[in-house]
Amino acid sequence: MKKGQRGYRLFEDLSSGLFLVTGFLLMFYEVVMRYVFNSPTTWVNEISTMFVVWGVLLGLSLGLRDNHHISVDILYEFLPGKVRRLIDFIANLAGLVFCLFFTYNGIILVGRGIKSSQVSIETGIPIWVYYLVVPISGVMFGIRFLTKIYELRHAPSVEAGKEAETIEHYHAF
């Protein structure tokens, strides 16, 4: 299980990172071609934008994995451990439901792109290729919400941890 988790983490890191870096390198290439060689390209803006969007959407699961998403916890910190766990469960469940909605609609979007046979004007790439990131990122994000729910369900109680800590503290005297 741990090996699979490490492999998945590496996949998340590499997929997001490679798309972002490639997108930014293509943007740099366009700047050099346009302002140094006075020979702008027609395809780089579209492709670099696609790469950056893919990198960002694939990186959503990284933010959740490493707890880097924005959260407001001013009141949350004052709640008892059991209530916090319930709120965490509900929030992660809501996130999972969103991912299911996002993935489902992404699949519909890709299907419509395939059915329409539309291609990009600048590059001639089928439009569904651009849309493919939506269901892929939805699944990756959903996997992270499922992981959070699993960890929350199988983690020891915060209250039990505090009780054990208090007991150890009193035994030290």
Score class of each variant (00 low, 15 high):
Met1Asp: 10
Lys3Ala: 04
Lys3Tyr: 07
Gly4Ser: 06
Arg6Asp: 08
Arg9Leu: 10
Leu10Arg: 13
Leu10Trp: 13
Ser15Ala: 10
Ser15Leu: 09
Ser16Thr: 05
Gly17Ile: 15
Phe19Lys: 03
Phe19Tyr: 14
Val21His: 13
Gly23Trp: 04
Leu26Ser: 00
Leu26Thr: 00
Phe28Ile: 09
Tyr29Phe: 11
Val32Phe: 11
Met33Ser: 08
Arg34Gln: 07
Val36Pro: 08
Val36Thr: 12
Asn38Ala: 06
Asn38Lys: 07
Ser39Arg: 13
Pro40Glu: 02
Pro40Gly: 00
Trp43Gly: 00
Val44Tyr: 04
Asn45Val: 05
Glu46Ala: 04
Glu46Gly: 03
Ile47Val: 12
Ser48Gln: 06
Thr49Arg: 04
Thr49Asn: 04
Thr49Gln: 04
Trp54Ile: 01
Trp54Asn: 00
Gly55Leu: 00
Gly55Asp: 00
Gly59Ile: 00
Gly59Met: 01
Gly59Trp: 02
Leu62Arg: 14
Arg65Gln: 05
Arg65Ile: 01
Asn67Val: 00
His68Lys: 13
His69Asn: 09
Ser71Ala: 12
Val72Gly: 06
Asp73Phe: 11
Leu75Gly: 07
Tyr76Pro: 03
Tyr76Lys: 03
Phe78Ala: 10
Phe78Leu: 10
Leu79Lys: 06
Leu79Glu: 05
Pro80Gly: 07
Gly81Ile: 02
Val83Thr: 08
Val83Ala: 07
Ile87Ala: 01
Asp88Ser: 05
Ile90Pro: 12
Ala91Cys: 12
Leu93Asp: 03
Leu93Tyr: 10
Val97Cys: 07
Val97Thr: 08
Val97Arg: 07
Thr103Val: 06
Tyr104Phe: 14
Gly106Cys: 03
Ile107Arg: 08
Leu109Arg: 04
Val110Ala: 03
Val110Pro: 01
Gly111Thr: 01
Gly111Met: 03
Gly111Lys: 03
Arg112Lys: 15
Arg112Gln: 12
Ile114Cys: 05
Lys115Trp: 11
Lys115Phe: 13
Lys115Asn: 13
Ser116Glu: 14
Ser117Arg: 14
Ile121His: 09
Glu122Asn: 15
Glu122His: 14
Ile125Met: 12
Ile125Ala: 06
Tyr130Met: 02
Tyr130Asn: 00
Leu132Pro: 05
Leu132Asn: 06
Leu132Tyr: 15
Leu132Gly: 10
Ile136Trp: 10
Val139Phe: 10
Val139Cys: 06
Met140Ser: 03
Phe141Gly: 00
Phe141Gln: 01
Phe141Arg: 00
Ile143Met: 12
Ile143Ala: 05
Arg144Pro: 01
Arg144Phe: 04
Tyr150Gly: 05
Glu151Cys: 11
Leu152Gln: 08
Arg153Lys: 11
His154Ser: 12
Pro156Val: 11
Pro156Ile: 11
Ser157Arg: 14
Ser157Ile: 12
Ala160Ile: 12
Ala160Phe: 13
Gly161Gln: 14
Gly161Lys: 15
Gly161Tyr: 13
Lys162Val: 10
Ala164Ile: 15
Ala164Tyr: 15
Glu165Ile: 14
Glu165Cys: 12
Glu165Gly: 09
Thr166Gly: 09
Ile167Ser: 09
His169Tyr: 14
His169Met: 11
His169Cys: 09
His169Thr: 14
His171Ser: 07
Ala172Glu: 13
